[in-house]
């Protein structure tokens, strides 16, 4: 089969062969046909390699372009992610971060990207979310998932589709902004019941380092309960409350606002990590394409030279045979 394809290609390549009667090529028994087959095959293999080189070169162009795009997007989103860190830091100073808190109803908010080709960032958040699920599930305890982004949805759908309550996609269509994320946070708050929200995302450290991170947002009731026990949250009572609001109301407002702020930061950090991961993934794939291209060029030149050498030998030996016959 392959030989037939080669021969057909060879005919197109070498019109001198194609001009010969097809019947001769079809019968592989005669010696002259075999020679033709070999000849065709020899030049054909360079043709195949040449096509392969062309496609590798095109792929390399694409990956290079993707890397450039990711780099420029990264620069835009990185500044905003770093600025948004100021939003959650006061909350952590005030309410603390309690990743190990033991509550009945946990909701894991998994943040991922809509598009692929960005390394392992989506699979790490999914892994962490699953670990959180295992840690927090148990008798009389419930864990549910809220999934942001197409990729984590596709992975989580396979094994935990019964625990998903909400999924959100197309978040990245406009540049990320607070209004958008807060509407999203609002929708999540309205649709799930929780004692603790655990937001899983990739925190951006540098272009090559992303830490899968969990931020915990507690519900006001849990904060109140914890503050009665004491510890970090016990200091809440030392704050004076102005106006006619009670501690419970203040805590509820705070928890809601904390969630939207933490979400905002998490979404930005995740977008930032996505771009960084895509950049390094595309960088290594264009490097790989370059290596492959080098190897292919070497093979191509080697075959070409070999065929030239053989032809030369054929011509010379033919000429000397004629000379000897004279």
């Amino acid at each position: 089969m392959a030989m037939a394809v080669f021969r057909r290609e060879g005919r197109r390549l070498l019109p001198s062969i194609a001009a010969r009667p097809i019947a001769a090529i079809r019968s592989p028994l005669s010696s002259s046909d075999q020679e033709e087959g070999l000849l065709g095959l020899r030049s054909i293999s360079t043709q195949v390699v040449r096509n392969r080189m062309k496609s590798v070169k095109n792929i390399q162009k694409i990956t290079k372009a993707m890397k450039m795009v990711a780099a420029s997007k990264l620069r835009a989103v990185q500044g905003r992610a770093e600025n948004s860190r100021g939003l959650w830091q006061p909350f952590t100073a005030l309410l603390g971060d309690n990743p190990s808190i033991d509550v009945k109803k946990s909701v894991v908010v998994t943040l991922s990207s809509d598009k692929g080709l960005c390394g392992g960032i989506n699979s790490t958040v999914v892994k962490v979310s699953r670990a959180l699920y295992k840690l927090n599930s148990g008798p009389e305890k419930e864990v549910q998932f809220v999934i942001v982004g197409e990729k984590a949805k596709a992975i989580m759908f396979r094994d935990s589709k019964n625990d998903i309550v909400l999924s959100v996609t197309e978040l990245n269509k406009n540049p990320l902004n607070y209004a958008q994320v807060s509407v999203l946070a609002d929708d999540i708050l309205k649709n799930v019941e929780f004692d603790a929200l655990r937001i899983v995302y990739n925190k951006f450290h540098s272009v090559v380092a992303f830490l899968p991170t969990v931020s915990t947002v507690l519900s006001p009731e849990i904060i109140e309960k914890e503050s009665e026990i004491g510890g970090k949250l016990g200091e809440l009572d030392s704050y004076e409350i102005e106006g006619g609001e009670t501690k419970g109301e203040i805590l509820q407002n705070l928890a809601e606002f904390q969630f939207s702020c933490v979400m905002f930061n998490a979404v930005l950090e995740n977008a930032c990590s996505e771009m960084g991961a895509r950049m390094s993934a595309m960088d290594s794939s264009s490097r790989n394409a370059g290596e492959m291209l080098d190897r292919l060029t070497l093979t191509y030149n080697r075959t070409r030279q070999a065929s030239i050498t053989t032809e030369l030998i054929e011509i010379i030996s033919g000429a000397s045979a004629l000379e000897a016959a004279k």
Partner: peptide
């Protein structure tokens, strides 16, 4: 401050029709 995302609720392990915000 433009808002754009699509949200779908899940029931019985299936996504319901997404709502576009």
């Amino acid at each position: 401050e433009k808002v754009h995302f699509s949200l779908s609720k899940w029931a019985d392990g299936k996504a319901q029709k997404p709502v576009l915000r």
